[in-house]
């Protein structure tokens, strides 16, 4: 199996960085790697709510992402916040590609606990980050403590929202304002933690 390589155009816009980061995270999944490694073709993902567009070229294990959409490309219209596919156009031109892309768009995220540990490994190096974090999952009442438990920041949410938060799909401040995640802790810690989740979203953590 060829290892996937992922690149982006110069001066990428956020949506390109976000999808490149997602591809890099998913690349650790053998199922994703197997499907993406075999794909050859181009797919455009178009937000149904904003003009955000990202085109992804698959070519022998290399994935390249850029903003502009080529004409007549297979286009998937989706809600970028939830990942829900609304419709697909030009599928009749690229039927096999359309089928494989649908498979590829499944969630290959690891469990939230694994994502949180991976996230913390990088985020704990940032200046101003809380010394520890206590995470509480509402679904099964489980907890996970990372770093120093004293003066830790508390984070609470469903397994899905915790997976999204630590998996680079949510920015903490947005998640709090949208009531997807609850936190307790100092504002400085929350701001730096939010910055870390933003960097993770953009693939820069």
């Amino acid at each position: 199996m060829t290892e996937l390589t992922i690149s982006v155009e110069d001066n990428p816009v956020p949506v390109v960085l976000v999808f490149a980061a997602r591809m890099r995270r998913f690349a650790s999944s053998p199922a994703f790697e197997r499907i993406a490694g075999r794909l050859a073709g181009t797919v455009t993902l178009q937000s149904t709510a904003t003009p955000e567009t990202v085109t992804i070229e698959f070519k022998q294990g290399h994935i390249h992402l850029y903003r502009r959409a080529p004409e007549h490309s297979l286009t998937v219209y989706l809600d970028l916040d939830t990942g829900e596919v609304k419709r697909i156009s030009h599928a009749w031109r690229h039927p096999l590609m359309a089928l494989r892309v649908r498979t590829l768009m499944r969630d290959y995220s690891p469990r939230w606990q694994d994502s949180a540990k991976h996230f913390w490994q990088a985020a704990s190096q940032l200046q101003g980050i809380p010394p520890g974090v206590k995470i509480h999952c509402l679904d099964d009442n489980s907890t996970l403590e990372l770093g120093t438990p004293e003066s830790a920041m508390e984070i609470e949410g469903t397994a899905g929202n915790l997976a999204a938060l630590f998996g680079g799909e949510l920015i903490l401040a947005d998640a709090i304002l949208k009531k997807k995640i609850a936190t307790a802790g100092r504002m400085q810690h929350m701001a730096v933690f939010s910055e870390a989740t933003m960097m993770n979203l953009l693939g820069a953590l």
Partner: peptide, 14 residues
């Protein structure tokens, strides 16, 4: 509010 970055001169809770 600037909730995704911090400066030491900011106040801890608005």
């Amino acid at each position: 509010p600037h909730l995704t970055f911090w400066h030491e001169d900011r106040q801890p809770a608005f």
